[in-house]
Design a protein around this nucleic acid. Structure first.
Length: 645
RNA sequence: GCCGCCGUAGCUCAGGGGUAGAGCACACCCUUGGUAAGGGUGGGGCCGUAAGUUCGAUUCUUACCGGCGGCACCA
């Protein structure tokens, strides 16, 4: 049977005809030796596959080279880097078993099973061997194996994880094996034509533990992370970016700007210093204003509750291990609150509530304690005692939609005031372990979905990630360097009002259960302030800056005048400090710049004489000379927090 | 919690079986200087905690505590 002719269409619209099945390798060679050399893979009807994959029918194709801008090329390179790393590891450490090794954002990793731990020195050896494997330019081939043959092969080799993996693959998938040199791995591909095409722009970055199949009950593997790019320039840009991110680390800035500290006797709790606490209060004051304007009622509920309450709410069963529990002098067992909702229900339950009271919104800057696992602690971002900008909205089922829409509007407006314009919403539906029956979950999920759509925010699904009592929305913001932070949340809860017996009298005169909406915008103040610090690299906007203005003198002659200016600023409500030290102005400018003070008012003999100030902005080169009254009133206006009028 | 690494002055870090060093910061003195480091002098450490090995431990071993990077967790 003769092959039927094949026509391929190139991205520029031109076509090429072949007598029979053909591969990207051939086509690239036909087009030119330069392309043949640069070709990494081929896109056939939009799908990225091996260059050597047969084209058996007419198709639109594109030969893919490393300079094609799209992310799939990077993914291809990174996945290959993972394979080259695995080959290097197994050459150097034959006792290491391979498991999984995917491309990830910015790089790749590979998980190995090996009794002996890898050391940082090992990374250097592995990286060196990787470069050798690239230099060997081993051809990479794809093979389809018989399933049982593959299982036996890997078992014989002592590669138990691979064998187990194949056994769990669906029966209808091809068992594709990629071979490079003497090494091979089970993989779906696609891959480069040879290891030489990987290039040199990769680097192994870190070593860590990881569980087999991501489950903490399974064996722990050793993961090696690396980064990989198209070329050295991109690699260096990435490494520079990492250094920059390190510089804006809130833990470092918190110390340098003396905002807060942490110490081991209080692991997981923050010691706020005056400057840090000023930021905190600015956030809290702002939130209080926003909540009041949105018809929330602020309350304060206890820290300690008896065990029975946690049993009734369901927290005892699910979160007891993560709670701080203590015994009082008698028989009672008390738990420090890990969340505020049971307390809010107690407030709701006082007196008889009518449908006319709904929606009733209780807000609390609630201090919570959770015994987070030691490995989870991270600066002030993940701590054991923290304060949520928490609120619970008690409403009817009919009110879910309007309350959700109002909340979404409030949240986006708050984020914008803090400088975050980019918000992503994730919709998390029922988790495998949950309270409440399926019919209730159906109702809650339907209501929330409707509400989300009504709010008009784009959202994506996050299946199985809901809270144990209800579905939730998670609000993710994007910071100045593109990182995503989940801060806000809105959770629909039909369960807790039932468990804690919250009720209102409806129009029909009968008692009904309210729905509870749990919601937070910032999440926790501690974490949110950490995010703010990193987002702004410490250079907070004027309204949040702990010290907004420093009045610095050039000579001692200006001291009296500087004090006058400082007092005027303070009287206008600005957070101001004066620097009358016997230091040169260069020194003062440098020091306050490093302290990230947004505005300096420099005064010398001239200014004192003329009643002016030289206003200098953080990071700015020029100064502006203004009458000091004018400077103060301008700054006062500029420093006003959003929504403060 | 798990794996790996780390813990020396306020900070960043060097050192190394015989009880320690640098830079910055700090204090004092000189300098009154016009927008990112003026000069000099000086003080400062139970080398994370506890046990073990040793004539002797900050250095080697072990355990614990804490930190860092991940993993797992995140109501």
């Amino acid at each position: 049977m003769a092959d039927s002719p094949i026509r391929v269409t190139l991205p520029d619209g031109s076509t090429r005809d072949y007598a029979g099945p053909v591969t990207g390798t051939t086509i690239a060679a036909d087009i030119g030796p330069g392309l043949a050399k640069a070709a990494l893979a081929i896109r056939i009807d939009g799908q990225l596959v091996d260059l050597a994959a047969p084209i058996a029918a007419d198709a639109e194709i594109a030969i893919v080279t490393r300079n094609d801008g799209d992310d799939e090329v990077l993914e291809l390179l990174r996945h290959d880097a993972a394979h080259v790393m695995a080959e290097a590891v197994q050459e150097l450490y034959p006792d290491a078993q391979v498991t999984f090794g995917p491309a990830i954002e910015d790089g790749f990793y590979y998980d190995f099973a090996r009794d002996e731990p890898f050391t940082p020195d090992d990374l250097e050896h592995i990286e060196k061997r990787m470069h050798e494997i690239v230099a060997r330019d081993e051809a990479i081939h794809r093979e389809i194996w018989d399933r049982q043959q593959a299982i036996n092969f890997f078992k014989d080799k002592g590669e138990h994880y691979k064998a187990e993996h194949i056994e769990t693959l669906p029966a209808d998938v091809d068992i594709s094996i990629y071979r490079q040199g003497d090494w091979l791995d089970l993989c779906t591909g696609p891959h480069l034509p040879s290891t030489g095409k990987l290039g040199k722009a990769f680097k192994l970055t870190k070593l860590s533990g990881a569980y087999w199949r991501g489950d903490a009950n399974n064996a722990q593997l050793q993961r090696i992370y690396g980064t990989c790019w198209r070329d050295k320039k991109e690699l260096n840009a990435y490494l520079t970016m990492i250094e920059e991110a390190l510089k804006r680390d809130h833990r470092r800035l918190g110390r340098e700007m003396s905002l807060f500290h942490l110490q081991e006797e209080a692991a997981g709790s923050v010691f706020w210093h005056p400057k840090g606490w000023t930021i905190y209060r600015a956030c809290e004051d702002y939130m209080r204003r926003r909540l009041e304007a949105a018809d929330y009622h602020e309350i304060k509920t206890p820290q300690l509750y008896e065990r029975v309450l946690w049993e009734r709410s369901g927290h005892w069963e699910k979160f007891r291990d993560d709670m701080f529990v203590l015994a009082d002098a008698g028989e009672r067992v008390l738990g420090l609150k890990p969340m505020n909702c049971p307390g809010h229900v107690q407030v709701f339950r006082q007196g008889i509530k009518s449908y006319r009271d709904l929606p009733l919104r209780f807000a609390e800057f609630g201090s919570c304690m959770r015994n987070e696992p030691s490995g989870a602690l991270h600066g002030i971002m993940r701590v054991r005692s923290f304060t949520q900008d928490d609120a619970h909205i008690f409403c009817t089922e009919d009110q879910i939609v309007s309350e959700t829409a109002a909340f979404c509007a409030l949240l986006t407006s708050v984020y914008r005031d803090f400088g975050f314009d980019d918000v992503l919403v994730k919709f998390s539906d029922r988790p495998p372990v949950r309270a409440g029956d399926d019919a209730t979950w159906d109702r809650a999920e339907t209501a929330l979905r409707e509400a989300t759509e009504a709010a008009g925010l784009p959202y994506e699904m996050n299946p199985g990630e809901g809270a144990f009592y209800g579905p939730k929305l998670e609000f993710v913001l994007r910071d100045a360097i593109g990182r995503q932070w989940q801060c806000g949340t809105l959770q629909v809860d039909f369960v807790l009002p039932e468990r804690l017996d919250a009720a209102y009298v409806a129009e029909d005169g009968a008692k009904h259960r309210p729905v509870m909406l749990h919601r937070a915008i910032l999440g926790s103040f501690e974490r949110f302030i950490g995010i703010l610090i990193e987002n702004y690299a410490g250079r907070l906007p004027l309204w949040l800056a702990p010290v907004q203005v420093v009045v610095a003198t050039i000579t001692g002659e200006a001291d009296a005048y500087a004090i006058q200016v400082t007092e005027k600023c303070a009287a206008a409500g600005l957070r101001v400090a004066s620097d009358l030290r016997n230091e040169k102005i260069n020194y003062k400018v440098r020091e306050h710049s490093l302290a990230k003070v947004p505005v300096m008012l420099v005064v010398g003999g001239r200014e004192a004489e003329q009643g002016t100030v030289a206003l200098r902005r953080l990071g700015g080169k020029a100064q502006e000379t203004l009458a000091f009254d004018e400077a103060v009133s301008n700054l006062t206006r500029e420093a006003a927090p959003p929504a403060s009028t």
